[in-house]
Every structure is written in structure tokens, then in C-alpha cells.
Design a protein around this nucleic acid. Sequence first.
DNA 1: CTGATTTACTTTGCAGTGCAAAGTGGAATT
DNA 2: AATTCCACTTTGCACTGCAAAGTAAATCAG
Lengths: 134, 134
Amino acid sequence: MKPKAPMPEERSTEGRFAYEGLDRVIHERARLSVLTSLITNARGLTFVDLKQLCSLTDGNLSRHLQVLEKAKIVEIVKGHDRNRPQTVCRITASGRKRFVEYLETLEQVVLDAAKVAENESVSGLLRGLNPSRV
Amino acid sequence: MKPKAPMPEERSTEGRFAYEGLDRVIHERARLSVLTSLITNARGLTFVDLKQLCSLTDGNLSRHLQVLEKAKIVEIVKGHDRNRPQTVCRITASGRKRFVEYLETLEQVVLDAAKVAENESVSGLLRGLNPSRV
DNA sequence: CTGATTTACTTTGCAGTGCAAAGTGGAATT
DNA sequence: AATTCCACTTTGCACTGCAAAGTAAATCAG
């Protein structure tokens, strides 16, 4: 049998920084933008609004909305306004739930990173992260 | 010429939620894990440490470390310990800088999302995000 | 009325990438 | 000498983000 001495390093660090809450569907720059836009506008936003808010190209936005809709994170209603097609997007209830869980993980990442090992200085969230002695 | 009435909607919202600070090299679950591990352990971590901390497979970690090294975000020193190969990883100065910038953007995302449009309740960072009337 | 332009998307094509399974090389063990 | 174990690396593929091209309907120009 193997002794396998419990090294001082190993104090339940298994997956300490794995962040499984970082949902792949959400953890993508463009989609993160879209969802942040939508969660702050629960009444919904149009395709054109989103395109502007997120600085996305038409094709790009279209693709990401498809992904989010398929995942039931947003719902898309195609209608018309002033005789022009108008796509309105809203975040769904389950989408909101998933997004909030994701955000909680994000917050944890920021908090973990702000901890900076030897706990030199933990003032404002990100204070203390700049050049420290190597 | 076009009148182009300044709609009430448009108050410098261009790219409001674009988050260009979300560096593609960093904004990836596995690499985000690795960097958070490394920034909290400025002295460096071994391949095996990282594998455990981030719950990554060997191949996966190897690949991501290559990407991070090529981007000069981490430096990798291959040595030996007790006659076995040992890879030690450290975050570089510029890597730290880029990562901190990234984290600042992340924090902004969380803050923006916490704002929830009608500013119903902005207490704890993520309080107020749960089911609100649609 | 016809052709051109604009608006609001959708589709296509490809380069890039995350991931796991398989591979490598050297120590230690049998 | 052969096998096992450890610490990685390489390979292969399925997926995906992205932009360029395409589509459809309304509006405008002449």
C-alpha cells in the first residue's frame, strides 16, 4: 500500500477555484453583454437596442440570441413597429435564475482574486491587487 | 437631410454593455480558474497543484498553460523535484496587470447587473436580482 | 410604376478553440 | 528486464464565435 503523506498544502483545496457555476452558455462576452442589458431592462429590448448597447454586428447578435433562446434563457417575440419587423427580447424567469447564479460565481471570482494570498491588504474589492513584491 | 429625432431612449447608450475589457485570453473558465489560483499564490504553483485547484484534466491544463504562456501572462519553469519532472507556474507582472483590468470589468458587470433597471432595491451586491414582477 | 436604397434581420463559411483520449518519457518497483 | 506509475504533451474532433453575404419588406427617387 502507499503511505501518501498528507502534505501541508492539501487542506481541502480540491477544486477550490474550479468555478463550476460559470455556465458556458452565459460565460461568453457577447451573451454576457446581452443578458446584462436584458436583466436591467425587464420590460424587454429590441434587436436594435441590443445591437447598440452591446456593440455587436447584426449577424453576431442574431446568432447569440438563437443560442440564448434555445437555452430558454431569453424569449423572443417577433412583431412589427411602424410597418417594420421588430424583434423584442426578454429574459425568462429561469433565465434570470441561471444568470443570477452565474453572477454569484462571478462575484466569488472577484472576491477570491481580491484575497491575494498573504492577505496583504484587502480594502476596496480590487485594491491591493496592483504590483506586489514577486 | 434626415431629421433623426433624438429619441428619449438614446442617451449615450452606445456600447453601454459592450465590456471590451473582457480579454478573450482570460475570459475562459479554465484560464480564469488558473489565474485566480496564481494571483492568490504569487510564489507560484505546480502543474499538479493547479490541476487539483481547478479540477482540470492534464491535457486541458497543459493546453491552457500554453495559451497563457504564449500571451506572456504566466511564466513556466520546468524543473525537477525528487527526481520527477515538476512544472512551476507564476503569473507575470504584465499578466497581473491584464488580469486586474479584466477583474475590474468583471466587477462592473456584476455592478451593472445588480442595478436592475428601475432601481428597485440595490442593497447587497446581488440582492434585488431575484424574481421581480415581469 | 419601376429600380434603387434602407432597415432589420438570417444564413453561411471558416478559422479558432476547448476538451478528452491517447501518447510519451523517465523514474521506481517487481 | 518488464511493468507500473507519474507528470506531463500531443492529437483529433466537435463546437462556436464571427463577419461577410444573403433575404425580405418597406420606403424613396425619378
